[in-house]
Each structure stands twice: as structure tokens, then as C-alpha cells.
């Protein structure tokens, strides 16, 4: 189904900092394709790039902020969400996208993640999940599947991981989806949908890390992981988030799990302003 794009035809060049190429990501890494989906989602959604701000934390995925030609903020480890919260409230016209990794958003930034979802802060989170800490050399994290190898779980991971969509849905996110970077069309479409929907949207994007996680877990090439996505992925829109946990070799449920309406922080703030004005009279 996919039509290959040749370099000369890349229509999203205007959204990339070409003067920063080549990027630092490894051969076979899934972050680049996810950035590609993001830029094409901007294009297809018709949103004004001048009004989009991208905020990243630290880690391989966090480097995305440096490669997109948008107002982009590369902040500290785990802190992209509260930084983005300030930006959004400082200028509600901005369309906020947080592009970062699973370790950044779910471990060190976990508290910010659940509270941003609880507030239904109007922003879109693209969470690259490669099951490990890539930039520091392949350590286990909050999403590492049980029994998986990493540089800090040489005998296999003995901790249970988070089911991330379940976590954010329970915390109050109004849009929750999961795709892999194999699902480029669905991912692009999902990002565009999330960015145009008010409220807290969260998209988990499974991405290969052949250099580290893959090498230690019998998928030494990016393509190996892509094959595994192809074999294991099951598209199930509307699946109950509690049923979408990932283990090391079972099915990977992908799709749009949550798409509901709930007042955003800003909606609630406007109500508060009325109340405050009323009290002052």
C-alpha cells in the first residue's frame, strides 16, 4: 500500500532544520520515522506551523526538538510537560506538542504526566517507546517488558512495566492511541487528529532501538523489530486500555483506545474567571 517517497520529493523540508542534518539517531532507529509522521501530520492538518510549539525532555527522542523548524524547546529530563504547561497557559493560541521518550515521560516525568492528564491540559504528547534508555546506553526503564534484557537487567527484567495507555487514560486523558512506526499512515493520521482535538492527547509510538534494546533482545536490526511489529500487531480501535499491556513476545494491541470529551483546564479556568468576577461584585 505504501508509495515510496524519494528525497527530492520531501514536502516537509520546510518543517525541518536541514542545517542540522545529519541527525544523531542510529541506523534503524524508529524516532526519525515518527518525526516524519509528525511533520506530515502538521501538513495534512493544515495547522499554522508558526503557532505550533514543540517541547522535548532529555533522551534520544528528546532530540526531536532540535530538528524541527518550529518554536522548539529542549528542556530537562522529565520536565517537558510542566514547561509546556507554562507555555500553553502563557499563550493559549499555541498548539503544544510534547515529543519525548518513555523513560523521560513515564519514569522521571511520571508525576507530571498523570497530572497533565488529570488537568486535561490542551496538548498532544507523542511518547516514543523503545523499551529502554537509549541515550545512556540501554538501561531498563518503566516500560521494559518482563524478562527483557538490558544493560541493567543482565539476568532479565524482574519488574513489571507500566501499561502506559492505561495509566494516562485512568489519569484523565481524552485521547489515547498506540501505534508502531510501522503504522506510518495511521500514526500520521492519529497525530493530526490529536493535535486538532482539544484536551490532553497521548500517543504511544513503539519504535525500534536496534543498537541497544534490539541487540540485547534478539532483534539486532531495525528491520527485525519492524517484522516483529508486523507479526505481533493487532489493530483494535476502542480496546479497553487495561487490556493493552505489552509483554516481550505476545500480541501488541494498537489503535485508538480513548476519544472522549471532557472540559479542558482552559474551559475550567474560564468558569473560574466568571466566579471570581461574580465574587468581586
Amino acid at each position: 500500500m505504501t508509495t515510496p517517497l524519494t528525497v527530492g520529493e520531501n514536502t516537509v523540508d520546510s518543517l525541518l532544520r536541514l542545517d542540522r542534518m545529519p541527525h544523531i539517531w542510529c541506523q534503524g532507529c524508529g524516532i526519525g520515522p515518527a518525526v516524519g509522521c509528525f511533520t506530515r501530520a502538521i501538513e495534512s492538518s493544515g495547522l499554522d506551523p508558526d503557532k505550533i510549539a514543540l517541547v522535548s525532555g532529555i533522551g534520544c527522542a528528546g532530540r526531536a526538538a532540535g530538528y524541527v523548524k518550529l518554536d522548539s524547546f529542549h528542556t530537562t529530563h522529565g520536565r517537558a510537560l510542566p514547561f509546556a504547561t507554562g507555555l500553553k497557559l502563557g499563550n493559549p493560541e499555541l498548539n503544544l506538542v510534547i515529543f519525548s521518550g518513555d523513560g523521560d515521560l513515564v519514569a522521571i516525568g511520571g508525576n507530571h504526566l498523570i497530572h497533565s492528564a488529570r488537568r486535561n491540559m490542551d496538548m498532544t504528547v507523542i511518547c516514543i517507546n523503545n523499551f529502554n534508555y537509549g541515550m545512556t546506553g540501554g538501561q531498563a526503564g518503566p516500560t521494559t517488558p518482563l524478562d527483557a534484557r538490558s544493560t541493567t537487567t543482565p539476568y532479565g527484567n524482574f519488574e513489571y512495566p507500566f501499561n502506559v495507555p492505561y495509566l494516562v487514560a485512568a489519569s484523565g486523558a481524552t485521547y489515547v492511541a498506540r501505534w508502531t512506526v510501522l503504522h506510518v499512515r495511521q500514526l500520521e493520521w492519529s497525530i493530526a487528529e490529536a493535535m486538532t482535538k482539544p484536551g490532553f492527547s497521548f500517543i504511544e509510538v513503539l519504535a525500534p532501538c536496534p543498537t541497544l534494546y534490539g541487540r540485547m533482545n534478539k532483534e539486532p536490526k531495525g528491520l527485525d523489530t519492524m517484522h516483529s511489529y508486523q507479526e505481533r500487531s493487532v489493530v483494535r480501535d476502542g480496546a479497553d486500555p487495561k487490556d493493552v499491556a505489552i509483554d516481550s513476545d505476545g500480541p501488541i494491541v494498537v489503535g485508538k483506545f480513548v476519544d472522549i470529551e471532557r472540559p479542558t483546564f482552559w474551559d475550567q479556568w474560564k468558569l473560574l474567571l466568571d466566579r471570581a468576577r461574580e465574587k468581586k461584585k
Binding site: T76, L81, P82, T85, G86, K88, N91, N111, H112
Partner: peptide, 14 residues
Amino acid sequence: IASMNAILGASWAG
């Protein structure tokens, strides 16, 4: 931690 980051973000919004 979040408070400090939020004021930085707000400052960058002007």
C-alpha cells in the same frame, strides 16, 4: 520541580 518549569514556559510565552 513542575512549578519552576511552568514559569519558564510562561516566560517564553511572553
